[in-house]
Nucleic acid binder design. Structure first.
Lengths: 229, 229
DNA sequence: CGGAAGGCTATACAGCCGTATAGTTTCTTG
DNA sequence: CAAGAAACTATACGGCTGTATAGCCTTCCG
C-alpha cells in the first residue's frame, strides 16, 4: 500500500497535460453525473474547449475507454497486486481514501452500467475473495465449502449488490461522500451479517440435507464436509 | 394467487383503449430499452402517433408515473396482499410467470434507476420478509435475531442486489427471458446460500462476540439469544 | 529569423430528444 | 341529422447531443 501521502496520480491540475486533465475531468463527471455526461460538460470542467476532446481522443467512446483503463489502473495500484483481502476489507479501505472517492464511484457506476471496468472489478474481487477464503479455511477460521468458487461469487455479489441497492434507493445520499455512506451501510449491516456468518439462519440441517440429497452431483468436492452432529 | 389462466391485465391489444395500449407499450419499452426510451419509440410500438402521448398523459414524466402505478399494481395483484412469503419464493414465483416478464424487468430497472417503484418494491419485500421470518422463528425453523428488521433488510438487499449485479454484468443474458436467467442464478447460488444459512461461515463465535462486546447497545432485543455452548 | 507541427478554439452540422400547435377524423349526444 | 366534444395525426420548434471543419496561436527546430 501507499504511504499516508497522496498517491502519485493526485497532483496539482496545472502539472498535468491538458490530455490528462481532460481524462481526469471525464472520470469526475462520469462518476458524478453518470456516463450520460456530455463532452461539453467534461471540457468545461477541464477548462478547455470541447473540440480538444475530439482532437486528443477522437470521440467520446475512446475517452471513456481511456477512463476505464485509468480507473482500473488506480484500483490495482491502491489495492496492491498480490495482497489478498476480504471484499469487506477492500471496499472499506478503498472507500475511506479521500482522493479515491470519484474513482470508486466511477467503478460502482460501471457495475450498474454493465461496463467493462465494473465487470473486471467484480471478477477481481471474486478471485481475491476465493483466495482469501482458502487461506482462512486453512487457518481454521472459516468452514470449508462444497463449492468454494460459487461461495466466493455469492459472497461478493451479495455484499456489493446489497450496497448498490441501498445506495441507489437512498436519494438522500450524496455520491460525493461515498466513504461516509459505505461506512454507515456496513455499520447497519454488521450485526445481521455477523449473526448470519456465525450462527446461520436455520436451526436445523434439513433444508441443506434435502438439497444435497436431491441433486446428483455437487459442483465440487465431497458432500460430507460437516458430518451431522 | 391467480388461476392458471392469464391474469386480467393480459388481453388482446385490440381490446384495450389507446390510452392503455400506450401505457403498456411504454412499460414494455422501458423494460426492454431502459427509461431513456423515446416517446416516438413508445408511440410506434403502440401503433399510434407520438402526439397522442402528450394528449393523454401530458408528457413523458406523467406517462412514466402511470407506468409505475400500473406495474406496482400488477405486482401487488399477483403477489397477493396478505400472503407473506420469503423473498426467494416471491422472486422465483414472479419470474416464472410468462406474462409477468416485462413487468418484472421494469421493476429491476426501476431499482437500478432509483425510481419510486424500485424503492416501493424493495421496501415491500423487506416488510414481507420480516413478517415471514417472524413466523418462521415462532415455528422454530429459523433462529431469532438480535435485530429482526436489520436482518430482513440485509437478506432482501443481498439477494436482490446479487441478482442485479449478476444480471447487469452478464451481457449474454437477454432481458426478454428473465425467468430463465433468474432460475439459472438461483440454481448456481443454491448450494452456497444453503451452506451459509445452515452452517454459517465462521467456525467459532469470536467475531460475533467481539462485536457484541464492543458496541454499547444492540439495535434491538437482548444480546444473549443463543447462549454459548 | 522563419516555417512547419501540433495544441487548441470557434463554429457549424446533422440527428435525436421532449414538447407545442394546428388541423383532421371519429364518436357521442341532444 | 347536426353539432360539439373528444380522439388522433402531422408538423414544427427549441434545445441538447456527438461530431466535423477551418483556422488561430504557441512552440520548437533548422
Amino acid at each position: 500500500m501507499q504511504s499516508a501521502a497522496s498517491p502519485q496520480w493526485v497532483r496539482s491540475p496545472d502539472d498535468l497535460t491538458a490530455r490528462a486533465r481532460l481524462r481526469d475531468a471525464a472520470i469526475d463527471c462520469f462518476a458524478q453525473r453518470g456516463f450520460a455526461a456530455s463532452v461539453r460538460e467534461i471540457a468545461q470542467r477541464a477548462g478547455v474547449s470541447q473540440g480538444l476532446i475530439r482532437h486528443h481522443f477522437g470521440g467520446k467512446d475512446n475517452l471513456r475507454a481511456e477512463c476505464d483503463e485509468e480507473v482500473f489502473r488506480r484500483f490495482r495500484e491502491i489495492k496492491g497486486e498480490g495482497l489478498a483481502m476480504s471484499p469487506g476489507q477492500a471496499i472499506g479501505m478503498l472507500s475511506q481514501l479521500e482522493e479515491f472517492g470519484p474513482t470508486f464511484v466511477y467503478i460502482l457506476r460501471s457495475v450498474l452500467d454493465g461496463g467493462v471496468v465494473g465487470r473486471a472489478f467484480v471478477e477481481h474481487l471474486i478471485v481475491d475473495t476465493e483466495l482469501f477464503m482458502e487461506q482462512a479455511v486453512r487457518a481454521g477460521t472459516v468452514r470449508e465449502s462444497r463449492d468454494p468458487s460459487g461461495r466466493a461469487r455469492y459472497l461478493v455479489t451479495s455484499a456489493l449488490g446489497s450496497m448498490l441497492v441501498q445506495l441507489t434507493l437512498s436519494p438522500e445520499i450524496d455520491l460525493s461522500d461515498v466513504g461516509n455512506a459505505i461506512q454507515r451501510l456496513t455499520g447497519a449491516f454488521a450485526l445481521p451479517s455477523l449473526e448470519l456468518f456465525t450462527e446461520g439462519l436455520f436451526v436445523d440441517r434439513s433444508m441443506l440435507d434435502q438439497y444435497l440429497m436431491q441433486i446428483p452431483d455437487p459442483p465440487a468436492a465431497g458432500r460430507d464436509i460437516h458430518p451431522p452432529a
